[in-house]
Design a protein around this nucleic acid. Structure first.
Lengths: 198, 198
DNA sequence: GTCTATACAATGATAGAC
DNA sequence: GTCTATCATTGTATAGAC
């Protein structure tokens, strides 16, 4: 028998989503979230550095996942395939049941500048991790930068369309198609797009 | 005769940089900054939405500047040249005398996660503005996304090396070289980089 | 090892006077 | 545009309970 109910973090997330959806982010205090989860305010701040972080738990896995993804790609993979392996690794974290959660989270995020700021920061952290790993592997910081930006863009675009769309398929599939589209954009970049047409 | 000393915002910026450099961001209170600038805490928050924003005043001009830059490019410019016009427009805001300010600001930013979060948010806002403007012009959201990312990356990389380097030239020149490098990366993307070598 | 009680400094908002 | 005053809330620090 545990002395306390398990999964405090999960309960706090659930309570936060519930209350933010009902009253809005600003109108919900940390004390209310804690109480709703059967805990106290002090305990909430023991688990999370700040109020925003409740909604972003698990995001740090994505950062680690990006780095590992790059390192796990076959030795002879061309750069874009290395990127694909890494971005696909990001997708495996979100299972199908997280889809509804993602939807609700997205609505809440859109309502608060404070949360958007944190979301952007997380995205930037993932991009930086990917950038570093690709840079180490490809030995070209600028090429790595472009690929990291494209990969993260494909991932976020894919995620957005995944939670919006009605037909259900895995996130990885949607993101993979996004990557194809961006690859096609990149491959067209030389034709009249960069060099002036003469 | 003015009833108050002019340029409250500028004085607050100066006071903030001074105190943050001396004691650190967290150890400096809004009241101290205000007092140092000959004002009260309340007045500080009349000028700035929060403590962080003091250091980022004028950044919103960059966002507007990005949009206008894209719209001001000649009608027949190829996409990358449109980007170049827009990114160059961003550079004209920082004159040579802002270089030392940029250096000091950079040191302060590096010391506080809270400030880095805001900095990333501003970068993201510029990227989004550029993305929107390019998207409207090129009628291709993904191509616009890649170009916006590349442009902003060139701008920030250029800015970082501009404030670091000893020899003085205009920011626009450094950024222009960055853009050349990224253009070259993009043009090499099709050769063995994306498609597997056979 | 996780939870709680309490006290505390600082942010940011608000209302009203000069 | 600036000031005084007051307020709820965040986030920290500390000490102790189960």
């Amino acid at each position: 028998m545990a002395r306390w109910e398990p999964d405090a973090r999960g309960r706090l997330l659930h309570a936060a989503v519930e209350l933010f959806s009902a009253r809005g982010y600003d109108a919900t205090t940390a004390a209310q979230i804690a109480e709703h989860a059967g805990l106290t305010r002090t305990t909430l701040f023991r688990h999370f550095a700040d109020k925003r972080e409740i909604l972003f738990q698990g995001q740090d896995e994505l950062i680690a996942s990006a780095t590992e993804g790059v390192e796990s790609a076959p030795a002879d993979s061309p750069p874009f395939d290395v990127l694909r392996v890494a971005v696909t690794a990001l997708c495996t974290i979100h299972t199908a049941d997280r889809r509804e959660t993602g939807r609700r989270l997205d609505t809440i995020l859109a309502s608060s500048p404070e949360l958007q700021e944190r979301a952007v920061f997380k995205r930037s952290a993932i991009t930086d991790a990917l950038h570093r790993a690709l840079s180490a592997r490809l030995q070209d910081a600028r090429q790595a930068g472009v690929l990291a930006d494209v990969g993260v863009r494909a991932y976020y675009d894919g995620f957005a369309s995944w939670i919006t769309s009605t037909d259900d398929g895995p996130l990885a599939e949607v993101v993979d198609h996004e990557l194809d589209s961006y690859r096609s954009v990149l491959s067209r970049m030389t034709v009249g797009l960069i060099a002036p047409r003469r």
